[in-house]
Amino acid sequence: MNSGSAPSKNTLLRTRRLIGALCWAFFLASATQAQVLVVGDSIGAGYGVPEQRNWVSLLDAELKDTRVINASISGDTSSGAKSRLPALLNHFSPKLVIIEIGGNDGLRGQPVKILKQNLTDMIAMTRDSGAKAILLGMRIPPNYGKAYTDAFHDTYHKVAQEQNVPLLPFLLEGIALNPALMQADRIHPNEKAQVKILQNVLPLVQQSLH
């Protein structure tokens, strides 16, 4: 014998209406929330830094009405990022794509023409999806030779100019030459540097979202 009384039809109806209203409200909130997609390498992934304290997570916290999705992979190259991008665009439908890639191309001494083509293709893919793109520039250590390091860094400027996309010339400006802000490998920024990276990136992101 059931010791509890069954809910009335009116109670069930009210419950269903409430659940429906909550689901609809959640859908509207999700639909109106702009999404930012970060496609990068170890600098974007926050190598050696707690996930919640890397600059992408800080950016997500700063942009109150915008969800920031971090699709960065440590060790990735521009070729790898380009191959991953179509699926990411299809899955997340972002409003803005932050392209933070190329450092590993330079550290491996890959031809800059490959980097240039990959960055150009990623911007085209992003635009074709209906999203905006911004490009974060990078530098590599001078021991790779002046001709190559200059050509590498200039590639970001050339792509940004040719494709008419916003460019942050050097993501690690004010950081890379400060030992107190770099990890022991002198390649990756440490936890203290993450706020500074956010400060470098934030104005460009805010401008691109409006």
Score class of each variant (00 low, 15 high):
S78M: 05
S79M: 02
G80R: 00
K82N: 13
L85F: 11
L85A: 08
A87W: 10
A87G: 08
L89C: 08
N90T: 08
N90A: 14
H91K: 11
H91W: 04
H91S: 15
F92I: 03
F92E: 12
F92Y: 15
P94C: 09
P94I: 00
K95G: 01
K95S: 08
L96V: 03
V97P: 05
I99M: 07
I101P: 03
G103T: 03
D105G: 07
D105H: 02
G106M: 02
G106Q: 03
R108W: 04
G109E: 03
Q110I: 03
V112H: 06
I114S: 03
D121T: 10
D121A: 09
M122Y: 07
M122G: 11
A124S: 15
A124T: 14
A124E: 13
M125V: 02
R127M: 00
A131R: 04
K132F: 01
K132I: 01
A133Y: 01
A133D: 04
I134D: 00
I134P: 00
L135C: 05
L136I: 14
L136A: 10
I140G: 01
P141K: 04
P141T: 05
P142M: 04
K146R: 14
K146S: 12
A147I: 14
A147W: 07
A147P: 07
Y148H: 01
Y148C: 03
Y148T: 04
D150R: 04
D150P: 02
A151M: 06
A151Y: 09
F152H: 03
D154P: 04
T155M: 06
T155Q: 05
Y156R: 01
H157K: 09
H157N: 09
K158L: 13
K158I: 09
K158R: 15
K158W: 13
V159A: 14
Q161D: 15
Q161S: 14
L167E: 06
L168Y: 06
A176R: 06
A176S: 11
N178R: 10
N178E: 15
P179Q: 11
A180Y: 09
L181S: 12
M182W: 12
A184D: 14
D185I: 07
I187P: 11
I187N: 09
H188T: 12
N190F: 10
K192C: 09
A193R: 00
A193T: 05
A193D: 12
K196D: 14
